[in-house]
Design a protein around this nucleic acid. Structure first.
Lengths: 214, 214
DNA sequence: TCCGTTGTATCACAGGCGTGATAGAAAGGC
DNA sequence: GCCTTTCTATCACGCCTGTGATACAACGGA
């Protein structure tokens, strides 16, 4: 039987409101009252679903990480076996996959914006410490994975240090996302994908010059 | 005649205290009272030198940018004419220069930590907006400059898009700094310089494999 | 010596914050 | 019908914030 309210849906509603507040006003100004107002909920109701600010923040950031990583997994499934595609196609598919982490549309822009505030806060706020670390190692595992698969099919330049290249590509993605969110006029979406495509092209055997779809 | 107190020295003292608080507690918790306590100054005295919190923050961030950019200029002077060095040396010198932006020691670690918080805040706090932009374009001008000089002496691979490569290297530096500050166990100082050196090596003509000094 | 500038110190206020406590309303099983 | 659980709503408390106002000390030139 359906309850009058679905608690899980309520929490999603609150978390969505929180993201909007963070994107608009910054994590600093994201108070319980502000989130409640944004969700058009009474602060008392909000506190019925989240015992404390700490709980709300933690749950919200977990949701964010889950959302991004599930999208990445979906994208990975869609690609399927990388070896079945021609080499230039492999690079394009890989670029498209990694571009999920870049602020190329409003949805991803909001995600990266939240991510920037969240990571900065994690440096000094133990609430986020573990989650920030999980996110960092997660992207590194993903990057490491795609590089390994590309190397296995012989698409990559053979004598690459994959550990080092994982760090290099991860840092590049982090940096692109950061600048694209902070200064969209300095680094627009098209420039992002160009840089990413160039980087992947540089890792591959000569003659491959991929281009990502929009 | 020397006044009893030097106002400029006083301000430097306050700004240094502010940096310590930001590094330790985060920008979020950097209140006037906290800074005054760290500087062992009365909040009244502090307010005598800075009319408002806005002024203090702005002045502090300007000081930070000045500090880094003057260090970069000094380093540039020390290098002198790049063309007089052999090619591998050119790459090493360039890597050392750009490494001024990476958290390789405690001093630079503090700078980058402040920078992370400051940039995140700049996204939603108009106090920092212009300065954050200035910092971003500043590093891009520097990167663009060194790449141009390397290209002029024929050290770089000839058919590089320098605009694109400027963004790529800038993003790499941003990303390395961010991760090295947030997760020093994931990305240590040595890994930072290795990645940077590899990247520069990839931009250069074949056969050049630089290695930076510690 | 007097006086104006500069620096130091303190109080008070209004506003925002998270949170404990509590009171009612609404809903669903019996 | 009643009773328990779930949900909504509001009050009050203590804490911290930036800032205006103000008083007082200390110095330097006249």
């Amino acid at each position: 039987m359906p309850k009058h309210v679905d608690p899980e849906a309520r929490r999603r509603l609150v978390v969505d409101a929180l993201f909007r507040v963070v994107v608009r006003d910054g994590l600093q100004r994201t108070s319980l009252r502000a989130v409640a107002a944004e969700a058009e909920l009474n602060i008392g109701s909000l506190r019925h679903y989240f015992a404390s600010q700490h709980d709300l923040m933690q749950f919200a950031m977990e949701s964010m990480i889950d959302r991004v990583s599930s999208r990445l997994l979906t994208h990975l499934d869609r690609i399927g076996d990388l070896g079945r595609h021609p080499r230039t196609e492999q690079l394009r598919l890989t670029a498209d996959l990694l571009a999920e982490l870049l602020p190329l549309d409003e949805e991803r822009r909001a995600e990266v914006a939240v991510f920037v505030d969240f990571n900065a806060a994690a440096r000094t706020n133990p609430t986020f410490g573990a989650l920030s670390r999980k996110a960092a190692t997660g992207t590194r595992r993903l990057v490491r994975g795609v590089l390994t698969r590309l190397a296995a099919t012989g698409t990559l330049h053979p004598d690459l240090d994959l550990v080092l290249e994982t760090e290099r590509l991860s840092a590049l993605l982090d940096g692109l996302g950061l600048t694209a969110v902070l200064h969209p006029d300095v680094l627009g979406p098209q420039a992002c994908v160009d840089v990413l495509a160039t980087h992947l092209g540089g890792l591959s055997l000569p003659g491959e010059s991929p281009r990502t779809t929009r």
